[in-house]
């Protein structure tokens, strides 16, 4: 078959802008200046520096390779970024100054938004972040007792009882835990700001962006 015989007009590809690659999406979804994700040279310093690296399904280095290979589902279903403890060792040591910790947050958000996090082996973890955020949205402050109770009752009820009678009780006895949430005075103002922020992000996504 020669080039001449190829019917380009009949090709099923639409004549629009090529689809954004997974890597491109991830870059655009990461805040701040250029996160330098394309600069990764696959040296593995990140994985070697990671304190929870041994418990991750794929090391940060491998996650970079998989993102570049457009393996969206495998990446977003992995536990890697949920096991990131935000210690910034990888970022401090990366010879290419790649914003690795920021990448982990971007992947968390994508996995939550696209529902992949429910299929992950770390499927409990997103709830911890979500319940934390819920309390902040409601009161303007974090609420440890409410968060721990809600999270552990949902995911490990037996452990929750053990925790409440052990560490929880001790925390209260020492005056280190509130029984009721603390609310900031201007909680209405905060909620107005946050719902506006959500609206801005939604509009941007509808217009094809990735905010």
């Amino acid at each position: 078959m020669t080039i001449d015989t190829l019917d380009i007009a009949a090709s099923p590809m639409p004549a629009t802008v090529p689809k954004r690659s997974f890597l491109q999406e991830v870059i655009e979804d990461t805040p701040g200046s250029d996160p330098r994700f394309e600069m990764c040279i696959q040296c593995g310093t990140c994985g070697g520096s990671c304190p929870s690296g041994p418990d991750m399904e794929y090391s940060p280095r491998r996650i970079f390779a998989m993102i570049k290979a457009d393996m969206r589902e495998e990446v977003l279903k992995s536990n890697t970024f949920w096991y990131c403890v935000s210690c910034y060792y990888c970022m401090a040591r990366c010879p290419q100054q790649v914003h690795i910790t920021d990448l982990m947050y971007t992947l968390k958000r994508k996995a939550v938004r696209e529902g992949y996090c429910r299929k992950s082996t770390a499927s409990d973890a997103p709830d911890f972040s979500e319940f934390f955020a819920d309390a902040v949205l409601k009161y303007g402050r974090s609420f440890e007792l409410g968060l721990a109770t809600r999270y552990h009752l949902r995911h490990h009820p037996l452990g929750a009882i053990k925790m409440a009678t052990g560490m929880g009780l001790e925390m209260m006895r020492k005056g280190r835990m509130d029984l009721t949430p603390r609310r900031i005075k201007n909680v209405d103002q905060l909620q107005a700001i946050l719902s506006k922020a959500e609206e801005i992000a939604r509009q941007e996504r509808e217009q094809g962006g990735v905010a």
Binding site: Y105, K108, V136, A197, E198
Partner: peptide, 9 residues
């Protein structure tokens, strides 16, 4: 935690 849920917020 919050950064894992919503960037703008």
């Amino acid at each position: 935690e919050f950064m894992a849920i919503d960037k703008m917020q």
